[in-house]
Design a protein around this nucleic acid. Structure first.
Lengths: 215, 215
DNA sequence: ATAAGTGATATTGTATACAAGATGTTTGAC
DNA sequence: GTCAAACATCTTGTATACAATATCACTTAT
């Protein structure tokens, strides 16, 4: 699909940054990257512009482009916004979710439960992600869905940690069931509040991890 | 500040698109733009990459970059998301807004009222914008604030129309007072719901305009 | 007359060349 | 020995050159 190498480079770099391959503030050397990707500086520079536009890197004129990883404060803010977006999706989905959507949610939940029974963290993580994405879709607002997916993707790397907490998967599962029940009852405010807390707890768990890490 | 012409070009192009200087689907000719800005294609191309990354234009490999204006459906979706974001800001601001913030809100409202008394639409528009931005700031979440500002800016051109409705300014003003009262009472849910409706009505008014326009 | 094929043209994508400012080092003065 | 200034080097920003593909017009065959 993508003939443009610049696009492929942008995508690859983005993944690398999210995967933690670069330290915060690290300079993205045009020549090195050009060498790495076996291209000239031109497509690399176009890719860097995209990273900067997406807030993944920062540019200082005539100095270069530098990786810009979110600090603890910004991360908490992102988690908080994620909770708000999910709550909004849930609120709208309460009255808009189709039968098909509800069925998909039930199916996703079954697979989540399977993952718990098998103690398969990776599977739970994947199925949990799908569960939430079905709700975004259920908002019947393509723009909101897209923006929410973007932030979900940005937080992916950090969300992964928090499942390690003892009993978190089981609790998360119970919350899923509560969410589905509220959606079936079309109780918009209930859906919103449960979802908000369900997601916000991730931020708090993450905060805990950070605190433990620093002590 | 900006030595990079590519950045200036990107900003200018963005403004031009928002100002309606291009039709939907119009191709952004690299050579013409290079000529217009008196530069080579290189900085123009880097600017176009930024527009594409920001969703203002779409790129088809080996075909070019095309302006991508939101259609009626996407616009309604954007307005709806705006209402949700404002509600979220208000919810958080209810418990976080400082005394200074509340005072600024009161001052902004005074200037809004002045604008109404003078029947000065432009002034009302500007002061109303500031009023809302104070609430974003009041959320004490820099990330959320930034994202909300971005969407507010994107919708600026379309929001302008809806003030033309008879009596809209006065009604909007009354809602502002209700919002401030709820913020002072630290009633998070009340703030959220009033703000949501206050913003959502813009989308509905816009919808009306579109319908009238098409008949 | 229409449709398919072929060639000319135009436009994008990438590489290279050049210009200008930032960085780092050496030299010299105090 | 330290600080500052001049110089060398490196890196970014822009222009130009080249390669490859899409577009369009024209021809030709059915």
């Amino acid at each position: 699909m993508d003939i443009r190498r610049a696009d492929m480079i942008a995508e690859t770099l983005e993944q690398h940054v999210f995967a933690g391959k670069y330290r915060d503030g690290e300079r993205l050397d045009e020549l090195k990257l050009a060498d790495q990707f076996c291209v000239s500086r031109t497509p690399v520079r176009e890719a860097l512009q995209v990273l900067v536009a997406n807030g993944i890197a920062e540019q200082f004129p005539r100095r270069g482009v530098f990786v810009r990883l979110p600090g603890p404060v910004e991360l908490m803010e992102m988690f908080e916004m994620m909770a708000e977006l999910e709550a909004s999706c849930g609120r709208l989905a309460a009255s808009r979710m189709t039968e098909t959507g509800l069925r998909q949610l039930a199916e996703a939940n079954i697979r989540c439960q399977e993952a718990i029974d098998q103690n398969d963290h990776a599977k739970y993580y994947a199925e949990n992600e799908k569960f939430h994405q079905i709700i975004y879709r259920g908002s019947a607002n393509g723009y909101l869905e897209q923006q929410t997916l973007r932030l979900q993707n940005k937080l992916k790397a950090y969300r992964r940690m928090q499942l390690r907490f003892r009993g978190r998967m089981a609790q998360s599962m119970a919350e899923h069931r509560e969410i589905v029940a509220a959606l079936e009852a079309e109780d918009a405010e209930k859906v919103a509040s449960v979802l908000r807390n369900h997601v916000a707890v991730q931020g708090e768990k993450f905060h805990q991890l950070m605190a433990n890490f620093n002590s």
